[in-house]
Amino acid sequence: MDIGTIICGVLLFIGCFFILVASVGVLRFPDFFTRIHPAGKTDTLGQACVLIGLIFYEGFDFISLKLLIIVVFLLVVNPTATYALANAAFISGVKPWKKGDKRQ
């Protein structure tokens, strides 16, 4: 057990926790615009955590550079896709949920 493996395990645990909580959020929140919060934020951070954990396991070589590219790509693309989704829903007239409304 070297130090990289331990850090990797911790980061994998944190990342999986984030991803699981994000999924629970997607299930629990009452409407589309609130569901997009866990899917856009927590999921992104969780995935970044898992991949950075893999980088620590790998050490530094070409493969970890590829992992780094995937991390950067996810960090840029996930919010963009979230924005595109939210914007499309907003334009097509989905009304945001207000406190006291019924769950959808």
């Binding site: 991803i19 589309f32 899917a39 995935q47 996930n78 896709a81």
Partner: peptide
């Protein structure tokens, strides 16, 4: 709504990665 489905499938796609 179709947007909920799309959100779910997009998030499944990143999980697949």
């Amino acid at each position: 709504r179709v947007y909920d489905r799309l959100l779910a499938i997009n998030s499944m796609g990143t999980k697949t990665v």
